[in-house]
Write a protein that binds this DNA or RNA. Structure first.
Lengths: 186, 186, 186, 186
DNA sequence: TATGAATGAGTTTTCATTCAT
DNA sequence: AATGAATGAAAACTCATTCAT
């Protein structure tokens, strides 16, 4: 009903407010009062939707990650006839582009999105299976690729170190190709 | 003389106590009282040595990083006649071993040691110069390698994901080789 | 409604408690905990109403000054047909009587009520205008009178120096008359 | 000896440092550490010379007041043949000039120098005796004059309210004349 | 459901004072 | 006499959480 809609709106307002504050001033320096104030909601209302700050953070993380991955997949222009390498590179490339548009989101996800969360999302399992035919040790290989991608692109996005993300991107994709090559069953 | 020694000991006691608490229960959940208590020092003494918790953290980070790198270099068995690749792989391998022995230290450094801190340490600059003769874009290449190493080995050390560190290590070194190969001047 | 009333009551309780403590033991030796305890309110509640001790003090000062002036005016028995001198003397006389009843209040106001606060209150401006017709330099004249009154009666009220206030009062009013005389337009 | 000189110098350094800090940031916001630091003396040394902050303050007050009064008397150009009124006016005028040169000193003395301290200084007693011949109630009269002078000139010096001190001075001296007139035995 | 005043435990921080050197 | 590191009691201030409305 209208009621459910309202509820969802309040929850969403809280999550968005918290996300902004967490990214701008850090999790530790953000209080529940601040979040409630920014969301234009009473302090007590917070507890109607979330157990505490930690609960809120993990729900934001999952939500944001899902959004990003879903969008990246949609926009990556993947077709049936592509091979695994091309699909993966396209997906990564598009994800980087999306994160590059939003430094704060990138920083937030890198800090809070562990490999284990990704594993749960199903996407990774899917990818491991797809890679299984043509590559050795697909899970380890994908882990290496994902860690490299996350870590290096974060550094370039957030601090432009050692170079900015658009300059880094071809290098990163090249390195990924090299790793894939190494793991390809001859 | 004696006084300075005592002072250094107190400071060290505070840093060690804080390090343990930060790694065991997290930075945000550690209070200055706790640190002082664990260091067997009065609360007020903390403020004789550190401005606040943040100051303490950054000084611990720098200190620990320097320790690790120094030890790794000492123990890596590097000799004059080695080529760059061998030296780098040995250094990384030894660093991983050291970190593998101490999960908590690994976690702490990954969280708090940014690429920029490493850059300041001088070691990186040195490596870039050494690589300059035989590799294209040495800084970017090294950045990719370091991010991959830090991120992947952390995941393996801290959570044994996707596999434990001893299993991951050969894969990681292999991936690094593949990246080096890609950047080698013909 | 009821809520607002409660809020006002709490604020008032804090101000009254603080006033008593400030006057009895001094501002510097009064802690916020003490104030809260005396007001029978939790420590945190203090910060719901006041920024800090300084904020509280200035609000008490303004509040007390307004109270006193209002009461003095009410009780001074001023009528339309009186001339300025009579009105002023009656007002001052009544103010002194009120302060004489409450040494601590007198001490508090003398310490914390600057001339500038009085200026803001509007009463002074009014008096300046009224005096303008019959007296030269009315603002300076009134300033001299007020400073003399405040300072001398404080000394007599608080310490009975050189004599107690009831003995001093006629002298003070006499001195004020002399000053008025001096400034009267021929 | 040299030793006594050294001692006196340290004590003096502490008093001067404290005076500056008390006037600049207030008594309550000045700590003993700060005073010692500014005096370039170890914290513990403070306790060799003063019992606590209050002791220090009262000694500074007495010292500064004596200095001022002595200087004012020296510079007032008083001669044997002057009558009481002229002497008093000259003394007050010179004192105001001295205080006008040093706002902070003026503020400090007004806050900390009570009428009772003045009484102890002997100067007041002397003045009362001198006035005794020609004026009624000489002590009360002098008290009124001193309170008026202190209070009004402080306001003008510290805040230029209602006008600056050089503008106020003739008014103040005029008012004093009027008071003297009133108390003169016919 | 929603509110926001109230709480008080817990945290940071300051600082007068001591005392071994 | 002089030092200044160390102390710890006490102050200021924060904030998650509750609960009456």
């Amino acid at each position: 009903m209208d009621n459910k809609l309202k509820k969802a709106l309040k929850q969403n307002a809280l999550m968005e407010a918290a996300f902004e504050l967490f990214t701008k001033q850090g999790f530790g320096k953000t209080s529940i009062s601040e979040i409630a104030e920014k969301a234009e909601v009473a302090k007590g209302t917070f507890y109607l939707y979330f157990k505490d700050k930690y609960d809120l953070r993990s729900r934001i993380t999952a939500h944001k990650a899902e959004q990003i991955l879903h969008r990246a997949r949609q926009e990556a222009g993947i077709t049936e006839d592509m091979d695994f390498e091309e699909m993966l590179l396209r997906l990564i490339s598009r994800t980087i582009d999306i994160l590059a548009e939003d430094k704060l989101l990138a920083a937030f996800l890198v800090k809070n999105l562990g490999y284990s969360t990704l594993q749960k999302s199903g996407l990774l399992k899917e990818a491991v299976e797809m890679a299984g035919g043509a590559y050795k040790d697909p899970e380890i290989m994908l882990c290496l690729i994902l860690e490299l991608t996350g870590s290096a692109s974060y550094s370039a996005i957030a601090a432009a170190e050692p170079v900015n993300i658009s300059e880094l991107k071809p290098h990163l994709l090249g390195a990924i190709s090299a790793i894939l090559e190494k793991y390809r069953k001859e």
